[in-house]
């Protein structure tokens, strides 16, 4: 597909996404039509104060997770990478739950951010040998780091006392708590997202091999650190708001690549759109028909089988 057509498709997709956000706010346990939006009555309150911020949060979080997943797949040169699988989300959870246990709610985003960055670099350092990362080592390292961090979270839960149930619910990953207050924080993800898009040529080259990155004019260490930091930053911000929601970052780049191919200049924006759609749909389903089942549970139900499918499809690990 020509690059111009791809951008056209992208613009159309973002238009559809905006329509989907508007459409989703009419769906819910109480049916409300869009015409009531400006009415000022209960309908308008439901849409404007509850459903709209939640829909926007879902779209932002989905977009961010997808962008982070795309970047991690490129940086690890492995299409099984995802913030959830690599333990980035659980790293964020450690930071966030520590602050919850201490009752320092204002510091949750910063702590989640630090935790996510620590986790991603930990996995990168532990899994790479001479700059190479094999899939099996990567997945096992991700599991080990996740398990370790989950244990740390459990310790915090035990000592959290009355805040424990808050941590438990937050861990399951959900959007029921989101309000307009969360939107400015979530919007921060677009800083690292734009950075990733600006570095799309670098990401393309990094996915193509370790040995030629330097001779193609890229400082491999500085660039990788910067972009890993960006992916971890996105994840940290989202985790601090929504808890850990898995598999959006894994599935979105895969679906998008089928249409756009692997060029990150178009893949990242496409992935953003795809992730936003997926999480918006998943959240709308969970709040409407599944009785507020945490959306992280819904994504795991669909994402985990997809992950297994990807593993089975590989010839070697």
């Amino acid at each position: 597909m020509k690059i111009r057509n791809q951008y056209l498709l992208l613009i159309i997709s973002f238009g559809l996404l905006a329509l989907a956000v508007l459409g989703s706010v009419t769906i819910g346990p109480v049916p409300v039509s869009l015409s009531q939006f400006t009415g000022g009555g209960t309908g308008s309150q439901i849409i404007f104060d509850i459903r709209l911020p939640r829909a926007i949060a879902a779209a932002f979080a989905g977009a961010g997770l997808a962008a982070a997943g795309t970047a991690l797949q490129a940086l690890f040169r492995n299409d099984l990478a995802d913030p959830y699988i690599l333990g980035t989300s659980s790293g964020g959870a450690v930071g966030a739950s520590l602050m919850m246990a201490l009752g320092l709610m204002a510091l949750i985003p910063a702590a989640a951010f630090v935790g996510a960055i620590t986790a991603v670099f930990l996995v990168y350092l532990l899994a790479s040998r001479d700059g190479r990362i094999s899939t099996s080592v990567l997945l096992l390292t991700g599991i080990a780091v996740s398990t370790f961090f989950s244990a740390v979270v459990s310790v915090f839960m035990v000592f959290a006392g009355t805040n424990m149930h808050q941590i438990v619910f937050w861990l399951m990953g959900g959007l029921w708590n989101t309000s307009w207050n969360d939107i400015p924080l979530l919007s921060l993800i677009f800083v690292p997202v734009i950075l990733l898009i600006l570095y799309s040529r670098d990401l393309n080259i990094i996915t193509c091999g370790d040995s030629e990155t330097q001779t193609l004019g890229i400082d491999p260490h500085r660039t990788k650190l910067l972009l890993l930091g960006a992916a971890a930053g996105i994840t940290g911000i989202i985790v601090s708001v929504t808890g850990s929601i898995g598999f959006i970052g894994l599935v979105s780049p895969h679906l998008t690549r089928l249409i756009t191919g692997p060029n990150h200049a178009i893949l990242i924006p496409g992935s953003l759109c795809c992730g936003a759609f997926l999480l918006l749909i998943a959240d709308t389903i969970s709040r409407t028909w599944l009785g507020e089942l945490p959306v992280g549970v819904v994504t795991a139900f669909f994402g985990a089988p997809f992950f297994l499918f990807l593993i089975r499809r590989r010839e070697e690990l």
């Binding site: 040169r77 299409d79 393309n204 996915t207 091999g209 001779t215 690549r257 191919g261 692997p262 060029n263």
Partner: peptide
């Protein structure tokens, strides 16, 4: 410029 001995490109550029 550098032409490596072997190269495995995981994505279909």
């Amino acid at each position: 410029g550098y032409v490596p001995q072997e190269n495995s490109i995981p994505f279909s550029y």
